[in-house]
Amino acid sequence: QGSLPGVTCYEAGHPVPDAASFAATQAVLDLTAALQPEDTVLFLLSGGGSALFEKPLIDPAELQDITRQLLASGADITELNTIRKRLSAVKAGRFAQWCAPAKVEAVVLSDILSDPLDMIASGPAAPDPTTASQAQALVAKYGLQLSSAAHACLARETAKSLDNVRTQVIGSVRELCRAAETECRSLGYEPVLLTDELDCEAREAGRFLAAILRSHAGEGRKLAFLAGGETVVRLTGQGLGGRNQELALGAAAGLAGLRRAAVISVGSDGTDGPTDAAGGYADGDTLEELTARGLVPHEVLTQNNAYYALRAVDGLIFTGPTGTNVNDIAVALLQGS
């Protein structure tokens, strides 16, 4: 909110890099050109950097197309980054190599399960343990359409070690889950951390959380089941939504008729997919309210149109930008008798 002395801010595209991403990255490269051994680069990194910090090794339009192909395929974030780090002049440790012989102090907010440094923003300052053969196998797995130039990039091996980088992770989904546990406890709930490594299709996660609530309904306990991580969405339609909205909508049928039960799922950055919502909410009345409006959750999910369906039943959650990005959190609540 406002300018910072000595700091230039660039707004760029996400999840697909755009011209602003390329311009911002070039400005960083210009700033760090011809550094000396006594120089130190303070590199602040968070989720979203794969799109925001980018200098393509192939035609930019093709990079954008490959990114869209991967997003539509249902590939998870590590698969996505295994491909795109090889198509970039600043990922897979290449930014740290650019800065050499200067030292790089990397401070990281992790948005990837288990905090793998090579995958957070595709590892601009981290060695890359993945291999060219793994990248090529993903091309075959998802039937990606690539140019010969892109295939050539994937065939090149990346840096397996770096000697000018020191890194510390200062935030991750684990901390997000701990904070949620504390907040739930302060509200009188008994928190149960199911996982901080949630990694499956969003709608299936919603069905699973609804099933957990149904199993514990009637116990008279005030429970909060927490699941942190990052689900995926397989695109089968042309609608509007995000993975947290799909998770909430996926829970609606399982929650139907349950009293004092709800599933909430939000992105920690305040943005869910290409929408202005942070996530979604469903409770025991959501299915009935959708049905009254002629909306069938299964059909809506097939169209990937969760945003408009949840908006029709006041099931969207809006927070605005939060200033951080450490994955998503889903909370399944039972208020007891």
Rank of each mutant, 00 (worst) to 15 (best):
G254K: 11
L194Y: 04
T32D: 02
V7Q: 08
L295C: 07
Y189S: 10
K160A: 13
R259E: 14
A180K: 05
L44D: 05
V165Y: 13
T40K: 04
G270P: 01
H151W: 00
L247Y: 03
D128G: 07
V139G: 08
L176Q: 08
N325R: 14
G74K: 04
R260W: 06
Y308I: 01
T32L: 08
F208E: 11
A217E: 07
N244K: 00
I212F: 08
V233N: 06
A89Q: 11
Q26E: 15
A27S: 13
A155L: 06
L138Y: 07
C9R: 15
V173H: 11
L187R: 15
P56F: 07
L194T: 10
T32G: 05
D76W: 03
S3L: 07
A12R: 09
A205R: 03
K103Q: 14
L258Y: 03
D285P: 00
T82C: 01
D196M: 12
R94T: 05
G93W: 00
D328N: 15
T271Y: 03
A100E: 04
L193Y: 01
I77W: 02
L176M: 04
A100C: 05
A159Q: 06
T82M: 12
G257H: 03
S161P: 02
A106P: 08
R311F: 01
I317M: 15
L42K: 04
D272K: 09
D118R: 06
V326M: 14
S186G: 02
A292V: 13
L4M: 15
G218K: 13
L71E: 05
K222Y: 09
A132K: 08
R234E: 10
A61K: 15
S337L: 14
A75I: 05
S122M: 00
T182K: 07
D39Y: 10
A89I: 04
L71D: 03
L213F: 09
P101H: 00
S172M: 12
E289K: 14
A126Y: 07
R68P: 07
E11V: 13
P274L: 14
A12S: 12
A253Y: 12
A126P: 06
S110E: 12
L290P: 11
Y142C: 03
T302D: 14
